[in-house]
Amino acid sequence: MSEVHHNRSVNNSLFDYLLCIGDDLLILGHRLSEWCGHGPILEEDIALTNIALDCIGGASALLQFAGQIECKGRTEDDLAFFREAVEFKNLQMLELPNGDFAFTIARQFLFDTFGYFLYGELSKSTNKELASIASKLYKEVVYHQRHSIEWVYRLGDGTHESHSRLQAAFDELWMYTGELFSVEENHLILLEEKIIPDLTKVKPQWHERISEILSNATIAIMPEEDLYFSRGSRKGLHTEYLGHLLSEMQILARSFPGAKW
């Protein structure tokens, strides 16, 4: 009986965790897709749209797996289109409007370097399905990272205008980085089972990596002690922007349930 209870707790926790990392990719993918037709040059328009497609593909795999774990017959589309804002677990950073190109790149860089460590660790998960999805995401994020790092160098160490726009973007985004590596209490059981990695151990590596790149790009990072960090994303606390994003993302599926094309 206690083993049944234990397995149920692991599944509940894994379901919640999959929503967290699946929603990250879904919301970021949606934001990136807004660049389609608006990129600074044709080639970059295609690059951003490709990354958006990778994100949405990853979200689809993770949410599909979440639906299977939940055992209530919900598909990845049900989870994407028929949940309310408070049920979304994505990082607040990812739902913020795209801003200018520098802001989009700064956010992408912060998330790509986070994803690089997260998916790398998750691909060693004791859960085979999760490990397999994560190794595909890892392969993709290695490329995404290469793309965003090059732009951080170009903009940061570019013209006066590109530098000041990129610096302003990092200044605005930094308060959202505090929860990237926080471990939720209801995920501790997954940590014990080695289904998810202990990200608090990865945070110094992440910090070292972005500090090195930003310093080469002549971008300053705010000292941690001076700053308020936003928290609560994983519990469904969001900025005012998520509701607007969802209303656009979900309207078709909600107006025409089961629509196919």
Partner: peptide
């Protein structure tokens, strides 16, 4: 590097 990345994407 940008040319290589764009070539990959395009």
């Amino acid at each position: 590097e940008m040319a290589l990345q764009n070539a990959r994407d395009v």
